[in-house]
C-alpha cells in the first residue's frame, strides 16, 4: 500500500509542478554571430556541455561540445556559431507540467531542453534532469514538513500546550438561502475536530448538531455565524442569526413540527427534526429567540472521562 501511495505522490507532484518552477532561469547563451572559440570558453568556464543560441530572445539553435570538436578537426574554430549549430530543436513550454519533461527525456536522449514562453515564444530557461530531481525533492520536503508540523501542532494540542485553560475557537459564517452549500461548514468542522484529536463519538455528536443548526440558519434566516469553543473537558457551540426568530420555541422542540417551506422538504430536510435532534445529541441546549431580532442557540457536549 505505502509503495503505491509513494509512486502516486511523485506522479502527483510531477503533474502539479510546472516546468517554470524547476527550470534554471539564468540561461547562459551565445549569439549566432559569436565564434566557436567563444562557445568553447563559455563551456569551459561554466563546466557545461551545451548552449542555446539566442538572437533577441529567440531560440535559434543549440550548440554543444561535440559541435565544437567537429570544428577543431576541420580547423574552423573561428567560424560563426550560426554555421555549426543544430537547428532542429526539441524544446518545452514553461507552462507544461513536469511530467512532460520526464516523457521528453525518455523519448530523446538529450541532457537538456530549452524552455520557451508559450505566448512570446522567447527563451526563458533551460531544464536538465538535475533540475527536475531538485524540484521534486524540494516539493516532497515541503509537503512532508507541512504534514509533520501540522500533526505536531494539532493532534496533541491539549497535552502540549501548558496553560491553566486552553480554548480553541472556531468560527463559521453561514449564508442564508444558499442551499447548494448547506452542510459544507459542518463538514469542515468535522475535519477540524478530528485534527484537534477529539474522539470520533464526541465529534459526531457535535457535527450532527451543527449540521442541523447550519440547515436551520440556511432555511429560515438570511445568514448567521456558528462559533465553537473547544476546551479540554467540553465543546461549546453558539449559533446566532439576525432573524426572523422562532415564533414558538416550545412547538419547535416537538419532533415532526415543521414550518419549513416545500422546497426544503424536497431536498430531504425540514422534517421537523432539527431542534429535537440537536437536543438529543448534546448534553446541554439553550435557545434564546426574539421575533424580528434573531435567534441564539447554544449547546454543549461534554468530553467523556
Amino acid at each position: 500500500m505505502s509503495d503505491i501511495v509513494r509512486t502516486s505522490k511523485i506522479q502527483e507532484i510531477a503533474y502539479e509542478c510546472k516546468v517554470e518552477e524547476a527550470m534554471t532561469k539564468d540561461v547562459i547563451t551565445v549569439a549566432p554571430s559569436d565564434t566557436m572559440v567563444d562557445v568553447w570558453m563559455k563551456l569551459r568556464d561554466k563546466r557545461i556541455s551545451g548552449l542555446p543560441v539566442v538572437s533577441e530572445g529567440n531560440l535559434m539553435g543549440i550548440i554543444s561540445v561535440e559541435d565544437f570538436i567537429k570544428c577543431i578537426i576541420k580547423g574552423r574554430k573561428y567560424e560563426q556559431v550560426k554555421n555549426n549549430m543544430t537547428t532542429h530543436i526539441e524544446f518545452i513550454y514553461s507552462d507544461e507540467p513536469l511530467i512532460h519533461v520526464f516523457k521528453k527525456f525518455e523519448k530523446h536522449r538529450f541532457g537538456r531542453f530549452p524552455v520557451k514562453e508559450r505566448d512570446t515564444k522567447k527563451l526563458v530557461g533551460i531544464i536538465t534532469k538535475g533540475d527536475v530531481i531538485r524540484c521534486l525533492l524540494k516539493r516532497l520536503e515541503k509537503d512532508y514538513y507541512e504534514e509533520e508540523t501540522q500533526k505536531n501542532r494539532m493532534e496533541n494540542i491539549f497535552h502540549d500546550i501548558k496553560s491553566d485553560k486552553t480554548t480553541v475557537i472556531l468560527k463559521y459564517h453561514v449564508k442564508g438561502k444558499e442551499f447548494k452549500k448547506a452542510g459544507e461548514k459542518s463538514s469542515l468542522l468535522k475535519n477540524a475536530l478530528l485534527r484537534l484529536g477529539i474522539a470520533t463519538e464526541i465529534t459526531r455528536r457535535i457535527v450532527i448538531a451543527s449540521m442541523e443548526t447550519e440547515m436551520n440558519i440556511i432555511i429560515f434566516t438570511d445568514g448567521g455565524e456558528i462559533t465553537i469553543w473547544v476546551e479540554e473537558d467540553k465543546i461549546k457551540v453558539n449559533a446566532v442569526d439576525s432573524g426572523p426568530g422562532i415564533p414558538d420555541v416550545e412547538k419547535a422542540m416537538i419532533p415532526g413540527y415543521s414550518t419549513a417551506p416545500d422546497w426544503v422538504r424536497e431536498m430531504g430536510f425540514g422534517a421537523g427534526m432539527g431542534l429535537p435532534n440537536i437536543k438529543n445529541c448534546t448534553d446541554e441546549m439553550k435557545i434564546d429567540s426574539k421575533i424580528g431580532k434573531g435567534t441564539s442557540l447554544e449547546f454543549i457536549v461534554n468530553m467523556k472521562k
Binding site: 459544507e184 442541523e212 431536498m267 430531504g268 430536510f269 425540514g270 422534517a271 427534526m273 432539527g274 438529543n280
Partner: peptide, 26 residues
C-alpha cells in the same frame, strides 16, 4: 429524509448502506 439519518444512525455506521432517491450534495 436527511434529518432522520442524522437522528437515527448512531453507531458503527461505517457498515451502513444508505439507499436514497436524493442526489444533492447534502
Amino acid at each position: 429524509l436527511m434529518s432522520h439519518i442524522l437522528a437515527h444512525i448512531n453507531h458503527d455506521s461505517g457498515s451502513v448502506l444508505l439507499l436514497t432517491g436524493l442526489t444533492n450534495p447534502q
